[in-house]
Computed example of a mutant assay.
Amino acid sequence: MRLCDQDIEKYILKRKIIIDPTPKIDKITGLTIDIHLSNKFRVFKNFQKNVIDLKESPKIVKFALRENISDEIVINKGKSFVLKPKDFILAMTTEKISIPNNLVGWLDGRSSLARLGLMIHMTSHRIDPGWSGNIVLELFNAGKSILALSPGIAIAALSFEKLSGPSKRPYNIKSKSKYLNQSSIISSLIYKE
Rank of each mutant, 00 (worst) to 15 (best):
N50E: 13
N181H: 13
E161Q: 15
L107P: 04
S112P: 01
L180W: 01
K84N: 12
N39P: 03
F47L: 04
K144M: 07
D108F: 12
K40T: 10
I185T: 09
I28Y: 02
C4V: 14
H121Q: 11
F81I: 03
P85Q: 05
I52P: 00
I52Q: 03
K168H: 10
N46Q: 13
L139P: 01
I89R: 00
R169Y: 12
K84Q: 13
P100D: 09
D128L: 06
L54G: 02
P129C: 14
A154V: 11
E9K: 15
G117V: 07
I52E: 02
S175L: 11
G165K: 14
K178I: 10
S98L: 08
W106E: 04
L37W: 08
S150T: 15
I33W: 00
N46R: 10
I8D: 04
T94I: 15
N50R: 15
T22Q: 09
A156H: 01
S150V: 13
K84W: 02
S111K: 11
L113A: 07
I120F: 05
K96D: 00
D5T: 03
L139K: 04
A154F: 01
I75C: 08
M1Y: 07
K77M: 05
K96G: 00
T32Q: 05
Q182M: 08
G152L: 11
L13K: 14
N102T: 06
F140I: 10
M122I: 13
K24H: 13
I52C: 11
I18T: 11
S187P: 01
D53I: 06
L158C: 07
E9V: 15
H125L: 11
Y171H: 07
Y191A: 06
K84H: 12
K176W: 04
L116E: 07
T123N: 11
D108V: 14
K14G: 02
S38E: 08
L163K: 08
L54M: 13
T32K: 05
K86E: 11
